[in-house]
């Protein structure tokens, strides 16, 4: 199965943002946008939900902290108790620093690997879809022509005020654009 996509290319982030809002007002479905940098406010303009990766980070952090505290307690008080400075074997204050470091380590790695997993980023992955200059200075808005009433001419008309550089139709096999 293949999919017809309409690509609108811009040279400035403001044009992209404004046309994104305009198209959404006219009920067009925006598949994705491709930009050379993180455009402030684009997530709102595209209507993206806040990422749930924060939860991954929090959970990994909690696992790191609690897991390490338990391990330290087991090591210091059960497996091989050693008297250090006359302190009790299960001294909480001296277990905090390492537990904290472990929490940060796990939370950091957890969220980065979750990002790579969710966004399907891995070494040697082929770049799909390929656009010219999108990592340099081009801003591309991708619309899916799935709707029966989709009218490229109307899109062109809508986008004209926003310094549209080029409108291109592309047919890709399904899954070409990660959604």
């Amino acid at each position: 199965m293949s999919e017809r996509l309409l690509l609108a290319k811009f040279g400035h982030e403001d044009d992209l943002l404004a046309s994104c809002k305009e198209l959404r007002r006219h009920d067009y479905k925006i598949v994705d946008a491709f930009t050379p940098y993180a455009v402030h406010g684009l997530d709102r303009a595209m209507g993206l939900e806040p990422s749930r990766l924060t939860w991954v980070c929090f959970l990994c952090g909690m696992i790191g902290a609690i897991g390490m505290l338990i391990f330290e307690y087991w090591v210091g008080a059960i497996s091989w108790p050693v008297d250090v400075g006359g302190k009790p074997w299960n001294s909480l204050p001296s277990n905090v620093p390492v537990a904290f470091e472990t929490a940060v380590l796990l939370a950091g790695f957890g969220s980065v690997f979750a990002l790579f997993g969710v966004s399907r980023l891995y070494p040697g992955k082929a770049v799909r879809p390929e656009f010219d200059r999108v990592t340099d200075d081009r801003f591309i808005l991708v619309l899916a022509e799935t709707d029966a009433r989709f009218d490229p001419a109307e899109v062109k008309h809508l986008l004209r005020p926003f310094n549209l550089l080029e409108l291109e139709e592309r047919v890709v096999s399904a899954g070409g654009v990660p959604s």
Partner: peptide, 12 residues
């Protein structure tokens, strides 16, 4: 808080 407490507790 932790810095003050821990250092005083540790050094005793």
């Amino acid at each position: 808080w932790f810095s003050q407490y821990m250092l005083i507790w540790y050094t005793n």
